[in-house]
Structures are given as C-alpha cells and as structure tokens.
Design a protein around this nucleic acid. Structure first.
Lengths: 196, 196
DNA sequence: AAAGGAAGTTGAACTAGTTCAACTTTTGTA
DNA sequence: TACAAAAGTTGAACTAGTTCAACTTCCTTT
C-alpha cells in the first residue's frame, strides 16, 4: 500500500529527484507482492520475470551444482534488490533459485515495465545505470575477497560487515555464500566462541 | 586517429544509434593513448582516472594480498573495457593495479567527461547502463564458477571460452585469475598434454 | 653473444578445508 | 505436545591444492 511505495520511492530518491509524474510512473510499474517463506520468485529454466526490491523480509539466490550442493550467490534483506541478473537482463532462462527465507513484502517490476520506465525519462535511465554500476562494483569486491582471503577471513569479514544478515539467515546458506561447507563454518564458529 | 575512433564508435553502435553530433561528442570525450608493455594505467591509492577501451593490446588488473601474492581480477584484450570499477565509479582510491601486458592502444574517458556524455543525451546514459548491466552479469557468472567448480574445471572452461586470451597472457597471470598457484596450473597443463 | 633475471616445471612434504558418519538440537506441523 | 524432518555439531580420515626448493627454459638488456 501507500507505505510500501513510500519505501521504494525513497530508494529512487537516493539517486535521482522524483517529480509527481515520476512517482505515478513508479506506482504504475511496480507492484507490491507478499511472498511466503520458502516461496520462489525465480527458478532455473524459467526467465526471471522480475527485479525485486525487498521492502521487508529476507531472500537468498543460489545455484545447485552437478553433485547437488547448493551455492548461495546473494542475500537480500530490507532495502536490497534481488533477482538472477544474468537471466533478467538478457531475458534468458535462469540458472538460479531465488527463495524467501522469511515471509516478505517485495516491490516487483518486470522487464517490459522497466524498459518503459527507462524510455520514459532520462532520469530513470540514470537510476538503473547507477544501481547497475554499484552492483558491478559490489560483485568485483566480492570476487576479490573470494580470491584473496581464507575461509576464516571471509567469515570474519562478513560478520563484521553484515552482522544483521549473519543473525538472520540459516547457517548452511551463509556457509555456502562464503564458499565453505556447513561443517567447516560450524567449526570456525565454535573455535571462536571458545577463545572468547 | 580516425581508425581508432571508428573502433570505439562501432562499439557504441552495438548498443545505441549514433548521430553525427553524438560522434563528435565521443571524439571530444575520449582520447587515444598508447601504452607500453608493463606500463600502469591504474595504481593502488590513486583514484582510477579513466575507463579504458582497448583498441588493441592486452591488459590485466590485479590486487596484491598481504603476503604479497598477486591475484588477477580481469583481463582485457582488443575490444574490451578495463579499469578498477570500484575506484572509478565512486572516485575513491584504487586497490588494484591495471597494467599493459603488451604495447597497446586504448581510448580513455575520464569521470567528468563521462558524466557530461551521460548528461548530454539519454542515449549515452542508456549505453553506460547497458555496459554496466552486462558487466554485472559477467561478474555474477564468474563468481558462480569460482564457487562451484574445481581448479581443473575452471581451467578447462577458461581454455574453452577464451582460447585467444589463454594463449596471450603469461601463465602466472592466468593461474592467479583462476584462483590457483602457478605450480598447480603447470601440473594441470602437463598432465593434460601427456594424456593426449 | 653473454649474463642475469623472470617465467615455468617437477617432486616431496604439508595443510586448509572436505567428506563421511554418528550424534544433538531446533523447527514445523499434525 | 509430540514427533519427524531439517539444521547444526563433532571427530576422524582424507584430498585438492599449496608451499618449498631445486632445476630448466626463455626473455631482456647490454
């Protein structure tokens, strides 16, 4: 309702000013959807239909490797975006699952509506350019920490940077996000609490 | 000269149409620069001044970890872009080196000129949005292969996808791009040639 | 054309992180 | 409120990939 559009409009306003007309365009492009825990918003082999802004709740995206292990690619909690970008941007079948970890409220825009927004006004193009650039920088940093750090360092960094997320997501999801097994993360955690 | 602007204009035209006026804007925003082998275009602690389009030649970007090991983040050969995006986009000090692996010709745009281009015309904003989105999708795929594959699988995939690059870059750079030691890559290579 | 350094190779010893298996705790649902 | 399933823990055996060291080959520079 009103409230949830306020949240996404505030998000847009971090990067671009919004006229009344712009707000109207946003309200007609995005729709509010309630997603139950364990419900999927993206599934492999289907084109990712939406870009999802999480008003509140929590999601994770993951891929399933040949031998069946899950690898978490991203988390998204309040005020973050999530989708399978490779699928959404190119409108090709997804390779990821995106699932709700809690009952959540998201604002969804689909590819066509987004395209219309971008075409409608230079400012909207600027907005999507900005979030894409920030996403790119984010993934580049993430790759660096995967290449340069040990499992323990990655865990410590994550705890330090995202304490809210660390509390809120299941441990198996966090382990696979950090590129280690659940068993190993469990050992790291318990080593550490003992040291204190 | 003429030729090198033709290359970058052709690149723009993959994504947006260009008017004569647009071409003029590109010509006044980008400058052609010759970079000698081993010369740096980005260095840690300095803000990455440019986004570089490689007309011909080869570059790599890398970070140096605490213990001094180098980790290659990206390669760029003919018709690719390279910079430290986190530094360039946010105009913050770089953490990466970007160095020429061969004598190269690049077209450089700086942050302010790029900003003017984006402001000048909706189409330019669309262009930069498009390449940022593609970069994002690219890094997301790269992260997936780092999380899900073994060293050997990453090597095989790289050889298959980028045979030109594999031939052209030194082995220590490739090894660190793929997240393994030079020694291990050497062993993988020689195991394989023996099998044939 | 020679020399010195950088890049690549090989093998042996090692280790960070995995796998497997058995167990305990927590969570969801009837 | 109870019980089955999912999540997390712990230890022991293992392995993919690293480290170290000694050697060879290939480039640069003079």
């Amino acid at each position: 309702m009103q409230n949830n559009f306020t949240a996404i409009e505030a998000y847009f306003e971090r990067f671009i000013p919004l006229s009344d007309e712009d707000r109207k365009a946003i309200r007609s492009s995005f729709k509010e959807v309630r997603i139950k825990k364990r419900q999927f918003v993206v599934q492999p082999n289907f084109v990712a239909a939406h870009r999802n802004y999480v008003v509140n709740g929590a999601f994770r995206s993951y891929v399933v490797a040949d031998e069946g292990q899950e690898h978490t690619i991203a988390f998204a909690i309040d005020d973050w975006w999530i989708t399978d970008y490779n699928s959404y941007i190119f409108q090709k079948p997804a390779t990821m699952f995106v699932v709700a970890l809690e009952d959540s409220i998201v604002m969804q825009v689909d590819f066509e509506k987004e395209k219309e927004l971008k075409a409608l006004h230079h400012r909207f193009e600027t907005f999507f350019r900005t979030i894409a650039e920030r996403g790119l920088a984010f993934y580049q940093r993430r790759l660096i920490s995967n290449l340069t750090q040990t499992a323990e360092e990655r865990y410590n960094e994550f705890e330090f940077k995202y304490p809210q997320i660390s509390q809120r997501v299941p441990q198996y999801a966090l382990a696979s996000f950090l590129g280690m097994t659940t068993e190993y993360l469990s050992k790291l955690r318990n080593q550490r609490t003992r040291k204190k």
